[in-house]
Amino acid sequence: MTIELIAQLLMLGCIVGVLAGLLGIGGGLIVVPALLYLLPQVGIDPVDAMQFALGTSLATIILTSGSSALHHLKFGNVEIFAVKFLLPGIVIGGFCGATVAELIPGQYLPRIFGVIVFLLALQMYRSIKIVNQYPMPNAMFTTLSGVIIGTIASLAGIGGGALTVPFLNRYGVEMKKAVGSSSVCGCIIAISGMIGFIWHGAHIDVLPEYSLGYIYLPALLFVSCTSMLTTRIGVRLATKLPTTMLKKVFAVFLMLVSINMLFH
C-alpha cells in the first residue's frame, strides 16, 4: 500500500461522498471500476478482483449512504412510508445479488457490471424527462420492487440510487425526499450485500492479507474516511441546486464507464 495508492483512495472517497449526498447514490458506480483497477496493485489476484471490488464497494456504501441518510433525515428529506415497504425486499435482494455474483465466473462479472451500468445510465437519463406521476403502489408491489432493486444493486456493488430515485419519483415523491430515501435504502442494501460477500468470500482457500471475506479492509478505510466527510457537501448542494443537468452529465459519464467495463 503506497502513499500514491492511499492518496488515490482518499480522493476517490471525496468524490463518492459528494455524489452520495447530491444524487442519492452510494457511489459504487465509481468505486467498483476504480477498485477493479487499483486492487491488483496490492497483490489481489485479477481473477478475484471483481468480487473484492463489489464487496468492498458495498462496505464503503454502508458508511457513505449512512452518513448521507443521517444528514437527509436532519433536513426532513426522507419519505418514511415508501422506505418502510421497500426495506424488506431490499434486504432479501441484497443477499441474493451477492449470491448470484458468487455463482458467476469472475471474468464475466465486469461485463455484467458494464451492462447494468449502461442500463442504469439510460434509466437515469430517461427519468429526467418523466413527468407522469402515479399513486404509491400497495405494500406487496413496493416490497417486490425492493427485491429487484436490492438484487441488481448488490450484484453491481452499488447502493441502488439510480433505481430507487426514479422509482420514487415515478410515484410522486419529490426529488429531495427521493434522494434522501434512496440514501436510507442504499445503506440497507449495502449491509445485506456486504454480509453476503463476507459469507461467500470466507469459503475461498486463501484470502489476501487484511481482508474479511471479499472485503479489502484498507480500501474500505481510506475511501470511507473521506466520503463520510464530504456527504454533507452533497446534501447541501442537493437542497440548493437543480439536479437535472447534473443527472444528465452523470448519465453520460456512466455510459462511458459501462463501455470501458464491457471491453475490460
Rank of each mutant, 00 (worst) to 15 (best):
M1E: 09
T2Q: 11
I3W: 15
E4V: 12
E4S: 14
A7P: 10
C14N: 11
I15F: 15
V18D: 07
A20R: 06
L22R: 05
L22I: 03
L29C: 12
V32D: 07
P33M: 04
A34Q: 06
Y37W: 14
L38Q: 10
P40L: 08
V42H: 11
G43D: 02
G43P: 07
V47K: 14
D48A: 14
D48E: 15
M50I: 11
M50R: 08
F52Q: 04
L54M: 11
S57A: 08
S57D: 03
A59Y: 09
A59G: 09
T60I: 02
L63N: 09
G66D: 04
S68P: 03
S68Y: 04
A69H: 03
A69K: 09
H71R: 13
H72W: 04
K74S: 14
G76Q: 06
E79N: 15
I80K: 15
F81G: 13
A82D: 10
F85W: 15
L86G: 01
L87T: 13
L87D: 04
L87N: 01
P88C: 08
V91G: 05
G93I: 00
G93S: 01
G94T: 09
F95G: 01
F95K: 06
G97I: 01
G97K: 01
T99E: 11
E102M: 09
P105T: 01
P105N: 00
Y108I: 03
Y108K: 10
I112C: 04
F113V: 01
V117N: 00
F118A: 15
F118R: 04
M124K: 00
K129D: 12
V131C: 06
V131P: 00
N132D: 10
Q133C: 04
Y134G: 03
Y134A: 10
A139C: 10
F141K: 13
L144A: 15
V147A: 05
I148F: 10
I149A: 11
I149R: 05
G150F: 02
T151M: 07
T151Y: 03
S154N: 11
S154Y: 11
A156P: 02
G159M: 03
G160F: 00
G160C: 02
G161M: 00
V165K: 00
L168G: 01
L168W: 02
N169K: 15
R170M: 13
Y171M: 07
E174S: 12
K177L: 10
G180S: 00
V184D: 01
C185W: 00
I188W: 08
A190V: 10
I191P: 07
S192V: 02
G193H: 05
G193P: 04
G196D: 03
G196I: 02
G196L: 02
F197D: 07
I198N: 08
I198C: 13
H200R: 14
G201H: 05
L207Q: 12
E209H: 14
Y214L: 05
Y216C: 02
L217C: 06
F222M: 10
C225Q: 11
T226P: 06
S227P: 06
T230M: 13
T231E: 07
T231G: 10
G234P: 09
V235M: 08
T243M: 14
M245Q: 13
L246T: 13
K248I: 07
V249M: 15
A251P: 04
M255R: 08
L256P: 06
L256G: 07
S258E: 03
S258R: 05
I259F: 13
I259G: 06
N260G: 03
L262G: 05
F263H: 12
F263V: 09
H264F: 11
H264R: 11
